[in-house]
Amino acid sequence: MISAWLTQHGFVFLHTLKRLIASPVTSLLSISVMGIALSLPTGVYVLMQNIQNLSGQAGHAPQMSLFLRKDTQSADVQQVEQRLDRDVRILGHQFVSKETALQQLQQRSGFSNVASSLERNPLPDAFILHLQNEGAESMRQLQTELQSWPEIEYVQFDSVWIERLDAFLKLGRFAVLLLATILSIAIIAIMFNTIRLQILTKRDEIEISKLIGATDSFIRRPFLYFGAIQGLAGGAAAWVIIAYALSAVNLELVELSNLYDIQLQMQLLTLEDGVSLLIFSTSLGWLGARLSVANHLWQIEPQ
């Protein structure tokens, strides 16, 4: 029974492929329409990924400066250090004692006179924290948390650029989502109509199958396969379009990289994202077909 079921699905799959190949122009046209529609949101998504990567590459791992109270003892400093060690959000930290800070100040041109004229060291002990970039929100939260520790006088954190990048990426993601939603609906509508036309041309076959005992799922199956296979092909087309577009951009970037002496290369779609794209497009095709079948099949009852 299971082998009969598998044979049945295999047969329908091959039959559907044959049908797609039998009308190559129509199939290619609808596959490219789907591919182009899908490549728009996917393209914006890849762009966002690249901007995010670029911001990480530029060495902008966010930093935070902790200034301790003047009256802290070395035991307090150790305690603070231990607590910083335990926090997973902090990738690393660096202790700058008040003596070191003063030395650094003296070494800077223009400040040496000022520093040596001081009677006593006015600088506090400090920590420089290297953080994981998890967005401005969580960093501000960390800042407030650290501010509440008794040993700490002041936490300095310049969050403006992170917030800007954050806002920009957020906007980008919203655009991806918006584009994806609109174009998904378009793809479902296209598939809905394609399947509707197919059902009309296969009216006889459907009617005869019903007359000799076909269940609804048997009749639905070839149309669902058709939708899913076209969806899959559309997703693959989008992947190819994006790969070609990015390699073209990369060719242009080589020149720019040479002029500025930096590595500028667009990353292609990762395997994981590509597979997600295929699964998504397959589901869209299937869904369009399913809706269409549900809408049109019941109208065909043998007389």
Binding site: S3, F11, D204, E205
Partner: peptide, 30 residues
């Protein structure tokens, strides 16, 4: 088994495939 007055054959399939249809519909073993 129903023999229809207007035959109701599938004209895009050959003789073998027309007879195959009822077996496919009732999931006969390959």
């Amino acid at each position: 088994g129903f023999i229809f007055q207007d035959h109701k054959l599938l004209f895009d399939r050959n003789v073998y495939e027309n007879v195959l249809l009822p077996l496919q519909i009732s999931h006969f073993d390959n």
